[in-house]
């Protein structure tokens, strides 16, 4: 499992960079049409083997040269074989941050723990670290982030998981049960299930995320600027690979498959009937054998 932390320094020229090494690919930018990365958000993508997470907009107590609040972005990349304690740590970080986004107490604890683990002097030194030194910094950063996670409360909210969530759904982060359902989806992704689970800040309704085509998708609406954080959970539209047919949920595709079977059967029966009629006509028109 690899952990990367991005933040900026107080001084004007120390803009947002990862401390030490950076992820090999800025995969989160693919979500730029539905999310502003400086604001509170979570992105999680799993392909069944590997998974990657982006936790953005986590406030720091530090401010920059013009008094602007500095934020942390955390990128974690791993796979289902990552140690279960590590996955628990990641889940705890996500749970705390989602809980804070939902307006529950917790943001202060995360901010305080991160600020304590990453004092200004270290941040400003590591922002400019290059080459091999950057690799050492990456290890140090990962260790400190795991320590931060250890100080956070257990992700107990998962115990109250709502029943019957569809495979693809969207809901406000403050809607009862939504955060719990979301964290359950995160846990599954960390365990190796394919799917996506995001807390997005430029989304107001299901129509805004039609471009996200994972068959298993959970979206929480952040709600502080656009959209309603208390919006009820709704299943999301799904466009099959052909791009034509749409249904409310992938599980409804089973209904579509049933319809197709009925259609094929009807065609076979009609063809058989037609063949039988033609046969009868030929038989009727043909001269008698004797």
């Amino acid at each position: 499992m690899r952990i990367y932390l991005r933040t900026r320094g107080e001084l004007r020229h120390l803009d947002y960079h990862f401390l030490g090494a950076a992820p090999s690919r800025a995969w989160w930018r693919e979500f730029g049409d539905v999310n502003a990365f400086e604001r509170p958000c979570v992105l999680a993508v799993g392909d069944g083997a590997d998974w990657r997470l982006y936790l953005g907009g986590i406030p720091s107590g530090r401010v920059d040269s013009v008094g602007t609040m500095i934020v942390y972005s955390l990128v974690v990349e791993g796979d289902a074989r990552s140690a279960s304690e590590d996955r628990d740590s990641v889940l705890r970080l996500v749970a705390t941050w989602v809980s804070a986004i939902a307006g529950r107490p917790g943001a202060e604890a995360l901010t305080a723990a991160l600020d304590e683990a990453f004092p200004r002097e270290d941040v400003e030194k590591w922002l400019t670290e290059k080459g091999e030194a950057a690799q050492d910094v990456e290890r140090e950063v990962a260790g400190r982030v795991l320590e931060v996670s250890g100080k956070l409360p257990e992700a107990s909210v998962i115990a109250r998981l709502p029943e019957g969530l569809p495979a693809r759904w969207i809901g406000g982060v403050r809607c009862p049960g939504a955060a719990e359902g979301y964290l359950d989806r995160i846990r599954r992704i960390l365990d190796g299930e394919p799917g996506e689970a995001h807390v997005l800040n430029m989304v107001a309704e299901g129509e805004d995320v039609v471009g996200l085509q994972s068959p298993r998708l959970a979206v929480l609406i952040e709600g502080s600027g656009i959209g309603d954080a208390t919006a009820p959970i709704r299943s999301l539209t799904f466009r099959d690979p052909g791009g034509e047919r749409r249904t409310d949920d992938p599980k409804d595709l089973s209904g579509t498959i049933r319809q197709q079977v009925v259609r094929v059967a009807a065609v076979v029966i009609a063809a058989g009937l037609l063949a039988w009629v033609i046969y009868r006509l030929i038989r009727t028109g043909a001269p008698a054998d004797d």
């Binding site: 502003a36 990365f37 013009v66």
Partner: peptide, 24 residues
Amino acid sequence: GVIRGALRSKDFEPERVPSTSDPS
């Protein structure tokens, strides 16, 4: 929205206007 929020108090709070971390 963020700018208007920052103008609410008597002292302008530029800390409310986050700086950019990724291109858009």
